[in-house]
Write a protein that binds this DNA or RNA. Structure first.
Lengths: 234, 234
DNA sequence: ACGCTAATTAACCATCTGGTTCGTTACCAG
DNA sequence: CTGGTAACGAACCAGATGGTTAATTAGCGT
């Protein structure tokens, strides 16, 4: 392993494994996000790099493993962000709203990541399942939500019967949909879900929705319940 | 145009344009949903058909136009379903819950359609935008939601400040996420969002959430509002 | 009966694609 | 200063891929 000399002045290093790897990953991330797994071309990725296609196979072995490492790095970024979130000092209602807003902002700020997740779902998460690194990557967000939920219930302000994982799904779904499906939604309903001048509106809407759901005093919990509706098949 | 003889008994027709077209579209829908636009192969689609690759180009001209027709047909199916929904006789709260449940059930019942929408979003809805048929395909659901919303406000039960399109986005987001992202979500959080024994739970959760949001008497509308939080960039 | 055309088929093609072979070079240890 | 190895680059390859050419046939109108 090179001792990271990083000579401030002499920019033109010719042998720097770490930099070459990172360069490839950067370009690959953009290309996979832009064109999908099958759509992205190794030749094109190589061309946009300061190195060659051979180096991609030298460092990553195959297109699949390259994509897997792209995913690993992308997920590592959120985990890092989530670990920084600090809402312990807030009351449960404010804390949940703050967390929802952070999730909202994160999705807004990382559309490439959203695309990668969509792409990985098309492939039924086969790369995530094949990755040891991603298997042990727990989500700090879940634990934070769990703590806020406990506190809110202890204080009697949260009445909804949800656990942290499902609440995380609920919050994520709105944030994800807004970014991931903005193209088809915009084309079909003529509304740009990511228009800048509507962003604050949606951010508030998300928070309102989550708080209303958690604190809902039965207003909509039993009322208007459709009678024994079977979902279709048994 | 063949006068659609459709001889009940003699199944083995050899020249039937409509059937050949439909056959191709059926197989193409499954293949595109399974492998994505770029991942799907014309040769493979042809092989799974009772006809040949040449026929695909004879009827559809190109891979892109084939995919566009696949999308058009898929969207036509939902529009049809939506047009059948009848909640006029229900009170606003029940009507919204019923509509949310129908949306939920539709997503549950058509995972291939969900995948096609995800795929089309990766391609930034370019095929939808190129389709005249999809441009004029309005959504009956939006109008239904609009009417329920008006009625609910008139009765004073709905207090939230949303319009039909945004509410539709909110409802769809949860339904869509649950199906589309079940693989990555399951792999990362160890929870199968589409497990049969949890389906009723999520269906109820969706309804509760929507009703709580719409009827929320300010419980969470102003309370716990994070102070002047700027979303990032200006 | 028969000609016309929509419908169909087989074989073909240029190019692209993920992956590889093999030779070369920077750079650190000794 | 020199030998070994990690890092690198050019050219190559077999199979795949979207798309085409050209010849053929079913079946309806007349």
């Amino acid at each position: 392993m090179p001792s990271v000399p990083s000579p401030a002045g002499s920019a033109r290093r010719q042998r720097d494994a770490a930099r070459t790897r990172a360069d490839i990953l950067d370009v690959a991330t953009a290309e996979f996000a832009r064109l999908g797994y099958t759509g992205a071309r190794i030749d094109e990725i190589a061309a946009r790099t300061r190195t060659t296609k051979r180096m991609i196979y030298y460092y990553f072995g195959s297109k699949e493993r390259l994509f897997t490492e792209v995913l690993e790095r992308a997920y590592a970024v959120i985990r890092e962000q989530e670990q920084r979130l600090d809402v312990g000092h807030l009351d449960p209602v404010s804390a949940i709203r703050r967390l929802a807003e952070l999730t909202f902002d994160h999705h807004e700020a990382h559309p490439d990541f959203i695309r990668l997740v969509s792409i990985e779902n098309i492939h039924e998460a086969e790369h995530i399942r094949a990755s040891a690194a991603l298997a042990e990557l727990s989500s700090p967000a879940i634990e934070v939500i769990g703590r806020i939920l406990d506190e809110g219930r202890a204080q009697g302000v949260f009445t909804a019967d949800v656990d942290a994982v499902d609440l995380h799904a609920l919050i994520s779904s709105f944030c994800f949909f807004r970014v991931a499906n903005r193209h088809t939604f915009g084309a079909l309903f003529g509304r740009d879900l990511t228009a800048e001048d509507r962003r604050e509106e949606y951010r508030t809407m998300l928070g309102d929705m989550v708080i209303a759901y958690l604190t809902g005093k039965g207003a909509g919990r039993d009322a208007g319940r459709t009678a024994g509706q079977d979902a279709g098949r048994g």
